[in-house]
Design a protein around this nucleic acid. Structure first.
Length: 484
RNA sequence: GGCGCGUUCGUCUAGCGGCCUAGGACGCUGCCCUCUCAAGGCAGAGAUCACGGGUUCAAAUCCCGUACGCGCCA
């Protein structure tokens, strides 16, 4: 009998969900889905001063937008659902307390009366003497009488976990392999702070065990804490889960991805017009790949192929250029009605919804292969609906000698021309060129410019068809008049 | 400072001792297509596999150092 795979993502709600967190979430989700297991979301809000409800909201929205559903965890900012409820750590403090008492009673944890100042001094001296700046364990051996005396003085205490003094703790990491840590180099970790209660490393162990997490996949920065956590598992009589530590995501300059590199929040990518599927695919590839170096994956592909063991050990640089390419690929794969639906917020914001003019479906289809971001859709199509604005380059085209005559001539030629359709228009306009002894370019460019205000745009004749006779004629005239 | 981790084209990566004169993808350059811009097709430039030692008939691949970067202790 094999146990069911259970993975989790456990963010601290101290800010938005950033790209690194999104990737961690994705990998946990993929792993759970691949093994028909459960994906759990847990909110680590024990840092009362920095945790905010807004952050919780942002994180939940982000994960939802990414399309990663969780099987147990928050329902909203206050409530949650699942057999191991609550999933908000602040609501689990009594549980931590219970295990804390157990460890103290069994002599596996002890009261430490050192103040912050004393600890700082300890660290300073250690630095000076070139020793590792760790807690020296001075409160470990305090007698009951000494403790009573200190407390009689009103001394506050934190609780430290007794790390074994010898031996080696091996973290058998799925991605890194066996990583050895000498126990005597580990310090006695604070598991309960003087005033603020349980610490991250303590809660994390208890929750992961109680929630029956089988695979802990998290950022690289936690690797060094893992031996301590493993020892806490042992002290509590539990078996540690399988660990996997993911490498970091870097900005273009090779430092850890952060605000100064631009957007780091998942929601910002949504607002810039990336598709959730792009994010899933791109993030999956940032640190993982299959042996064919395949680039584009369906979700089903991802789920069936994704493997933690195949993850890269070294950090990866986040590349928005490739992200945009991929988004373009997926936009091109999206059927027009669906694309319009996705682009609604952007069209709305640009004031393009509900305006009279050509069929939006036809217009969007006309430029389909050009969109890299949903947010680009409005700017590329707005001239169909809004008054023409001429770019400097467009102005120059219209200034070409004879442009005005061409435009006015076309107005005449097209006034009653039927059918006002792609191929027929092309034939008619080419004939117009011949009649006037003009090269096609001398006519096509001014038309495009007059009608759109731009020198680049959709294929000409289909654009005219879709724009419709009335609008085309008005714009040709309008542009000609500007040339007076 | 200690401990831990990492290092293949600009970027993401393939590679797990001979198939590598190092493969793919993004980007870049050129050509083709063409009414512009894209998209698409084709071609090309781009990596002494961080460096130095070993092991081996043979190393990007195994071992040991060094450097650099990063993380944790903070």
């Amino acid at each position: 009998m094999t146990t069911k795979v259970r993975t989790r993502f456990a963010p601290s709600p101290t800010g938005f969900l950033h790209i690194g967190g999104a990737r961690t979430t994705l990998y946990n989700w993929l792993y759970a889905r691949r093994h028909k297991g459960d994906f759990i979301l847990r909110i680590e809000d024990t840092d009362e001063v920095r945790s905010t409800e807004d952050s919780v909201t942002a994180i939940l929205r982000s994960i939802e937008w990414l399309g990663l559903n969780w099987d147990e965890g928050p329902v909203d900012e206050k409530t949650d659902k699942g057999p191991h409820s609550p999933y908000y750590q602040m609501q689990r403090v009594a549980i931590y307390r219970k295990y804390l008492d157990q460890l103290i009673k069994e002599g596996k944890a002890y009261r430490c009366y050192c103040t912050k100042e004393e600890l700082d001094e300890m660290r300073r001296l250690a630095q000076l003497e070139k020793r590792p700046p760790r807690y020296d364990g001075r409160c470990r051996a305090l007698t009951d009488a000494q403790r009573a005396a200190l407390e009689a003085q009103g001394k506050k205490f934190s609780i430290r976990f007794k790390m074994p003094q010898d031996g080696v703790t091996i973290v058998d990491d799925v991605i890194r392999g066996k990583v050895h840590f000498e126990n005597n180099l580990q310090q006695d970790l604070v598991i309960w702070k003087t005033t603020d209660g349980p610490t991250y490393n303590f809660c994390c162990v208890i929750d992961d065990h109680l929630m029956e997490i089988t695979h802990v996949t998290r950022g690289d920065e936690h690797l060094s804490n893992t031996p301590s956590q493993i020892q806490i598992y042992y002290a509590l009589g539990w078996t540690p889960p399988t660990f996997a530590h993911l490498s970091m995501i870097l900005g273009p300059d090779g430092s850890k991805l952060s605000k100064r590199h631009g957007a780091t929040s998942v929601l910002e990518y949504r607002d810039q017009g990336y598709l959730p599927h792009t994010m899933r695919n791109y993030l999956a590839l940032l640190g993982w790949s299959n042996s064919e170096s395949q680039q584009l994956f369906t979700d089903a592909d991802l789920i069936s192929q994704f493997d933690l063991a195949g993850c890269q050990k070294s950090p990866a640089t986040f590349d928005t250029v490739k992200l945009q390419w991929m988004n373009g690929e997926y936009i091109r794969q999206t059927p027009i009605p669906e694309l319009i639906e996705l682009a609604k917020p952007f069209l709305e914001k640009a004031g393009l919804l509900g305006l009279p003019g050509p069929d939006l479906k036809k217009v969007v289809a006309l430029e389909h292969e050009k969109f890299k971001l949903l947010s680009e859709i409005p700017t590329l199509i707005e001239f169909f609906y809004k008054p023409v604005e001429f770019t400097p380059k467009a102005d120059k085209v219209l200034q070409a000698p004879g442009a005005k005559d061409v435009l006015l001539g076309l107005v005449e030629a097209l006034k009653d021309f039927a059918p006002f359709e792609d191929k027929a228009l092309e034939a008619r306009i080419r004939k117009f060129c011949e009649e006037r002894g003009l090269k096609p370019g001398q006519v096509f460019h001014p038309i495009r410019t007059a009608v759109s205000g731009r020198t680049e745009g959709p294929t000409l004749f289909l654009m005219l068809e879709i724009m419709g006779r009335e609008r085309v004629l008005a714009r040709l005239k309008g542009a000609a008049e500007r040339l007076k």
